[in-house]
Design a protein around this nucleic acid. Structure first.
Lengths: 233, 233
DNA sequence: GTGACATATAAGTCTGACTTTTTGTTCACA
DNA sequence: TGTGAACAAAAAGTCAGACTTATATGTCAC
């Protein structure tokens, strides 16, 4: 699925990246390019390219006479989709999933409000279609099919907001929703109330009712927070 | 300030990156590594490292027998701090500033609410200090000094939220605030009402009043939206 | 027009030699 | 004993050149 492994340098990244993201090398650890090149059985040039990419993600820092130093987590480019994927693949997964869910809860209501203002007729149609798809697959253990429509729904909202920063969070939301279905508690059919909320959001967007779209989406994200026991008492 | 230019490859990036981010090469444009290496008077290895970094930002895609293709803006990693800086430095600046301000308006109120719950005593003290600094410099054309305190204030809020995704938006907010002071309308002293709001947010966080901190911060961000004529009628 | 094949092209890879920066040590001198 | 300047070693940085591989495109037979 995510195994693109474009070229040798890509293969190195897919091994070293997750390892660093999982915290296998504590901050301050020092690696040497030559040694890494030997370990991965690639030439120094290939290894250097991989290190450059890790450096651009602020996962490591390369300094002369010292080596390649692993940086503290607080330095990482945590919005880099690849970093997010690497972290979700490792031991940090639960923590990462919580952070992302909180981010979602901040962004999506505002995005829905904007979508109600800016959505095109086509986007409104897509949204309704997604919502109907969710209703149709909400019973009878069709969790995978339901997930597809759920992800599509939220993607349309984020895109329709007209804000490029929101639009680029589509992958993040997809990852969170998939995580919930595949790894977290989600044995039974989805909550009927949540399904209804999605239908109502689609309605509100179609009617251009920004305030209602925002409020309804807030209810959806509050539900997501509660599922992870992130309370708001 | 931002001119780190670490190594030759860094110098290449600082020229090529902004050019691409500014849209000088339309999506689909094809560059050749050898040609670029000649143009920048560096070896192919150095050029390749630079291309790899641009590729990790999804600004370009490198394919055999084709070359280095510039990707559509919708593919870019718009949360990469370097990409944000490059775009802010170019013709895209106004558009970028608007996107980021909308993002701010979504995130900061939620972050303030969380800060009210999670802030340490030290963070509360810092916050109060920042707010007082803002008050002290809010009159008499001390715009630069005011900006320093303003940026610090919002950084503390984002950090105190305890959410790493929010915390990493500190640079973004700093950039937006600096942009407003340096390039946009900001000839006179800051709005006294805004200053008061910051003081009140500090209060609310200190008292652990999440709902009030959130609401007051929302008022601040709504003000920022209005300054850019992003209405909410 | 369709499909198999050949060819040219540009990225990808490897190697080895050389340069540059920086750290840490050593040694002289106050 | 402490200070500092010179020195040596280590690791990244840079370069040039030869070679490999994938692939877009054109060619030809059918």
């Amino acid at each position: 699925m995510t195994t693109r492994g474009r070229g040798l340098h890509g293969h190195v990244l897919e091994t070293l990246g997750p390892a660093i993201a999982a915290g296998e090398y504590p901050p301050g650890s020092v690696l040497r390019t030559d040694e890494l090149a030997q370990r991965f059985e690639v030439s120094r040039s290939v290894m250097r390219e991989a290190v450059r990419v890790l450096e651009s993600m602020h996962l490591v820092e390369s300094r002369r006479r010292v080596g390649v130093t692993v940086l503290a987590k607080s330095e990482w480019n945590v919005y880099d989709p690849q970093v997010i994927r690497w972290r979700l693949a490792g031991a940090d997964r639960p923590h990462q999933l919580r952070s992302l869910t909180v981010l979602r809860s901040a962004v999506e209501p505002i995005a829905a409000g904007l979508a109600a203002r800016h959505a095109t007729a086509e986007q409104c149609a897509e949204l309704t279609e997604c919502a109907l798809g969710m209703v149709a697959t909400s019973r009878g253990h069709q969790l995978e099919a339901y997930l597809v429509h759920d992800v599509a729904f939220h993607r349309v909202i984020l895109n329709a907001s007209g804000n490029e920063m929101f639009a680029r969070l589509g992958d993040v939301v997809a990852e969170v929703l998939a995580g919930r279905t595949h790894h977290e508690v989600m044995f039974e059919d989805p909550d009927p109330a949540a399904v209804t909320l999605h239908v109502q959001v689609a309605e509100a967007v179609r009617e251009g009712d920004a305030a209602r779209a925002e409020e309804l989406t807030r209810e959806i994200t509050v539900g997501a927070l509660q599922e992870l026991d992130i309370l708001a008492p």
